[in-house]
């Protein structure tokens, strides 16, 4: 009797997991010690970096997080992957609270939700070949396929998946262009076949063409493998072309969030309007420079 109850409970959680969103974030808050205000002999006062951030990311969904420097967007990326565990609020992954995960569940969570960093030069080990960097997650978790013990074949496939030639695997990161390095970062994030990518400013520092290639790649991954995406950027135009939902952060707080098309067509908040107007569109407009948006 009790066995059957157990079975039904398991069945229902499995059902819940299927219907629960991939990521459900509620009232997330994070504070860090403010070292600038630290008294000499005592602990630094805490400073709020993120306050009351909530959103839902469905499987295969795309959320754009927009913010300028100091808005807390990189901290949000770290909080979501529990590299900086938030003090307040909850993150639920497929209906289960990430806070309660044991070590094994946390490893599983981090394989499913992968972070791609802003600066590939500091995120890639300069002394290792690209193929070793890309296959490292497989090696670390003992998931290298049989007959490919050094990961060369797996790395080659991953590199080809992000539009690079497998031969690039022999090179070191410094011998690649900025756009290629960023794609190596994405290839590594894809190694464990995650459900979601959290991309933190991955196109800043690239020129327009390399940027357009990364966006095309992310779009293709989403279409072909149903990869969900949290795309963190200061570039509203890129977010517009990639994301269904947007969330606009300012000094750690959500200014405006919702359907991307609606927000871009009718921004309600003055800060959103100001951000939109500050983007120089490639169209001559002599009045733009002096225009102030209230």
């Amino acid at each position: 009797m009790s066995a059957s109850t157990d079975a039904s409970v398991t069945g229902s959680t499995a059902g819940m997991a299927a219907s629960a969103p991939l990521l459900q974030v509620q009232a997330l808050g994070l504070s860090l010690p403010d070292m600038a205000k630290k008294p000499f002999f005592s602990a630094a006062p805490m400073r709020r970096i993120l306050r009351d951030v909530s959103f839902t990311l469905q499987a295969g969904g795309t959320l754009g997080v927009i913010g300028e420097s100091g808005s807390g967007k990189s901290t949000l990326a770290r909080a979501l992957t529990m590299l900086m565990p938030p003090q307040e609020g909850t993150i639920e992954f497929q209906g289960r609270a990430v806070r309660d995960f044991d070590a094994a569940a946390m490893v599983d969570y981090r394989t499913q939700v992968q972070l791609v960093f802003q600066d590939p030069m500091s995120a890639l080990n300069p002394r290792r070949r690209v193929r070793d960097i890309v296959s490292q997650p497989l090696r670390a978790l003992g998931r290298l396929p049989r007959g490919d013990s050094d990961g060369t074949r797996a790395a080659g496939q991953l590199l080809e998946r992000v539009g690079l030639s497998a031969q690039l695997g022999e090179r070191y990161p410094h011998a690649l262009s900025g756009g290629q390095r960023q794609r190596v970062g994405i290839a590594r994030a894809l190694a464990l076949q995650p459900l979601a990518l959290i991309a933190d400013e991955i196109t800043s520092g690239l020129d327009v063409s390399a940027q357009a290639r990364i966006v095309a790649l992310l779009e293709e991954l989403r279409r072909d493998s149903g990869l969900a995406l949290v795309f963190i950027s200061h570039d509203l135009s890129l977010v517009r072309s990639l994301c269904d939902d947007v969330l606009i952060l300012r000094q750690g707080e959500v200014v405006e969030q919702g359907d991307a098309a609606a927000i871009f067509a009718r921004p309600r908040h003055a800060y959103t309007r100001q951000l939109l107007d500050a983007i120089p569109l490639p169209e001559p407009d002599p009045l733009w420079l002096e225009r102030e948006v209230a």
Partner: peptide
């Protein structure tokens, strides 16, 4: 280069890499 420049003001505008 112009086609690769993102346009938030044009819904449905897809970026075309060079």
């Amino acid at each position: 280069l112009l086609a690769a420049t993102p346009r938030f003001d044009r819904p449905g505008h897809t970026l075309v890499p060079v």
